[in-house]
């Protein structure tokens, strides 16, 4: 296996310029996120671009491949602690899972399971399974979910960070649901079926995918934090994700039958409380938020204490 030092950047800002303002997680590439999230210079990549482990399928469709197949995996340090980390690049094929992309994440999480002590960070940025290699992608999702649960059963925290362009959709949403903790920003979205998929299958009366406000109050970061699907909400800044990730890898990520039962109960309660409601606004009102309409426009520093007061606590189960 080729291991090489990270020395990358998606744009000219490959390293940290002095006096630079907060870097947006949403705007950053997968490699920039890794560079700024982890302790400086600590990332060592497995199957790095020079190894050219690319998709065997895309050329059949006359589509260009990418040298890392849209995911960078490796090890590094976070707040001085060893971590295993994977970052999806949402701008390559929508961050979608293909055969190689999926196998890289499966291998990483299985390594964490076998080490049984090194936390895993998954920087989700994905539309789900890559349609050109759908069978391999679907199998990869199942393998990754199994590996995540096995790693957690061995006591390893598996933390998902969500705030990229592609959101966290399809099989990515399923894997996220298996994680021990999720950190999300306002720009982040979690769902299985995306807005366009729902509209295509059920009609525009069911879900208007062009209504961005509707998309965000159904799947967006603030809503996911308020209903407890994500435990931690952060501002769209790499430093904020870093601070939250350091906290999450220090928590107990273990899963057993009791945790699973508590998680099932949490989800049952959610359906009972909110299952008949038509809109996110109704749910926020039911949570007791005084002026639900003000939530979408709220800056992070106002929203975070509000969510702590009224939101469902995401740490109850998982």
């Amino acid at each position: 296996m080729h291991v090489s030092r990270a020395e990358s950047g998606g744009d000219p800002v490959g390293s940290r310029p002095a006096g630079a303002g907060p870097r947006s997680w949403y705007e950053a590439s997968a490699r920039q996120r890794l560079d700024l999230l982890l302790d400086p210079g600590s990332f060592a990549e497995f199957l790095a671009p020079p190894d050219r482990v690319v998709s065997p399928h895309l050329a059949l469709f006359d589509l260009p491949h990418q040298f890392d197949d849209g995911i960078a995996v490796g090890r590094g340090r976070l707040g001085g602690r060893d971590v295993l980390v994977a970052a999806q690049e949402g701008r390559f094929m929508g961050g979608a899972f293909g055969e190689v992309h999926g196998a890289k994440l499966t291998g990483l999480v299985k390594a964490a399971r076998d080490l049984a002590s090194t936390p895993v960070l998954i920087l989700f940025d994905t539309g789900g399974v890559r349609l050109q290699e759908a069978n391999a992608g679907e199998l990869a999702i199942a393998e990754i979910m199994r590996a995540v649960i096995e790693a957690r059963a061995a006591g390893v925290p598996v933390v998902g960070l969500i705030g990229g362009r592609a959101g966290c959709y399809g099989g990515g949403g399923l894997i996220a649901a298996c994680c021990s903790a999720l950190v999300i920003s306002e720009q982040g979205r979690i769902a299985v079926s995306g807005p366009e998929v729902i509209e295509t299958n059920r009609g525009v009366e069911e879900f208007d995918s062009r209504d961005r406000a509707l998309v965000w109050r159904t799947m967006g970061g603030k809503h996911r934090r308020l209903i407890g699907a994500a435990g931690t909400f952060v501002d769209d800044a790499v430093a904020a994700f870093r601070a939250a990730a350091i906290e999450c890898i220090g928590e107990n990520g273990a899963i057993d039958a009791a945790v699973l039962a508590a998680e099932q109960e949490r989800l049952d309660t959610r359906v009972q409380r909110f299952g008949t409601m038509e809109d996110g606004l109704d749910i926020w009102a039911a949570l007791g938020i005084p002026d639900p309409k003000s939530v979408p426009g709220m800056p992070a520093e106002t929203f975070i204490p509000l969510a702590d007061q009224f939101g469902v606590n995401g740490h109850d189960a998982r």
Binding site: S4, E7, S8, G9, G10, D11, G14, S29, R31, A48, P49, P50, P64, H65, Q66, F67, E89, R91, F92
Partner: peptide, 20 residues
């Protein structure tokens, strides 16, 4: 003295460049 560098993404209107 760097042995390699990578920039860009294979997205629409973009490209990735691996320098070795």
């Amino acid at each position: 003295r760097r042995a390699m560098a990578i920039v860009g993404v294979v997205g629409s209107g973009d490209l990735e460049v691996l320098a070795e």
